[in-house]
Simulated scan of single mutants.
Amino acid sequence: MAFLRAAAAADLVRRHRRVPHASLILHPALLPPPPPPSMESFPDGPSTPGPVAQNDIFAATPCHRHRHRRWPRPLIPISSSSYDSSGARLPATVSLYSHLSSTSWGAGGDSTPPHQSPPAPPPPSPWVDRWVPLAARPYAMLARIDKPVGTWLLAWPSFWSIAMAAMPGELPDMRMLALFACGSVLIRGAGCTINDLLDRDIDRKVERTKSRPLASGILTPTQGVGFLGFQLLLGLPILLQLNNLSQILGPQAYLGLVFNWGALIGWAAMKGTIDPAIILPLYTAGICWTLVYDTIYAHQDKEDDVKIGVKSTALRFGDSTKPWISGFGAACIANLALSGYNADLAWPYYPFLAAASAHLAWQISTVDLSDPLDCNRRFVSNKWFGALIFGGILCGRLVS
């Protein structure tokens, strides 16, 4: 009897012996509360293992010569939602090994959630915000100092005529170029101020222009008029340094604010007279060029123009915009060629003119008139068209 009791005790100890735990242990926060034991799970007593899931990673390993045993362990799906010990729902992306990784979400590493890229850095602030004093900043924005492309478009026609009026084999008058450069900045600023004063009610209804200083109310109309007078006063000493004919033509640039009027003033400032065979084709070319880039520019606001009833060339030409601006571009190139021929420019002028023609053709053929950003990019690129024509006139005059 003693021998049988000893054998039974040894068998009981052997039945209750647990196999070693798996090498990977779940984080306690990820373990669900264990289910209460029931007699159905142990039909043959506590030593009989209960049902085991098919993918149980805690399945027991073989122990000596005995048959394989599988013990019930709390399971947690790898890619499904689960609950912590307090009953709170855990994210579906939590991995079994998340508590072992120092870079897991919420594990003290990177705080960026998985499958989410970090936010893009903010765009750089305009140079006006960095260098212009706060009190003067609205006036700088009113004069469009932060957008110099308009100044370039205004300055190039006058630069063309000054270079064309130079003596053969000589560089153009640098002092005159500097005066017209400063005058272009002031005239362009005055023109933008007048435009914003007259159109401030319309600008409030257009998405692109509603943040302008006068439209947004940062500046009052009285302040705008005062700033306009200040710009015209600064331009007066520049005008007084020109000859009499230029002084007569000069105020027209302030009153009419015609971008290509500088072609007439530049030649008059150098020669004291107007040569119609040279200047009229040059002036006409500038007008046709303006119709090309200004129509492309107008397509940025055509949806707002329809709402508020503005009659722009973009709406007038409609689906026929590209044929129209192609015609203006061809007229621009033809008049530039005629003006250069009448001015006796040498052969280097014409390769530059061909390059400018290719640039203009590229603009017209590739612009997406339904994309405001693309229209703006093509508009801004016109400063390079003006630079090509100026380079051609300069080289043509030096070689002639």
Rank of each mutant, 00 (worst) to 15 (best):
S82F: 08
Y83L: 11
D84E: 00
S85Y: 01
S85I: 00
S85P: 00
S86Y: 01
G87N: 06
A88T: 06
L90F: 01
A92F: 08
T93K: 10
S95V: 10
L96H: 15
Y97N: 14
Y97E: 14
Y97D: 15
S98H: 11
H99L: 04
L100N: 00
L100S: 03
S102C: 09
S104W: 00
S104H: 03
W105E: 00
G106D: 12
G106K: 04
A107K: 00
S111P: 15
T112G: 12
P113K: 05
H115G: 13
H115I: 13
Q116H: 11
Q116S: 11
A120D: 09
A120G: 00
P121E: 00
P124M: 02
P126N: 03
W127D: 01
V132W: 07
V132N: 02
A135F: 13
A135D: 14
A136W: 12
A136M: 14
P138A: 03
Y139P: 01
M141S: 15
M141Q: 10
L142T: 10
L142D: 04
I145W: 08
P148V: 12
T151V: 02
L153F: 01
L153S: 08
L153C: 10
A155G: 08
A155I: 06
P157L: 06
P157E: 08
I162T: 02
I162V: 08
I162N: 02
A163P: 05
A165V: 14
A165N: 10
M167I: 10
M167D: 10
P168I: 09
G169Y: 01
G169S: 04
L171M: 15
L171D: 15
L171I: 14
L171E: 15
D173N: 04
M174C: 12
R175D: 08
R175P: 11
M176W: 10
L177C: 05
A178S: 12
L179E: 12
A181S: 15
C182I: 15
S184C: 11
S184R: 03
V185W: 02
L186D: 05
L186Q: 03
I187R: 00
A190V: 02
A190D: 08
C192I: 04
C192Q: 04
T193P: 05
I194F: 03
I194W: 01
L197M: 00
L197W: 06
L198E: 09
L198I: 10
D203P: 05
D203H: 13
K205W: 13
K205V: 13
E207P: 05
E207A: 12
T209M: 02
K210T: 09
S211G: 12
L214Y: 06
I218K: 01
L219I: 11
L219A: 10
L219Q: 03
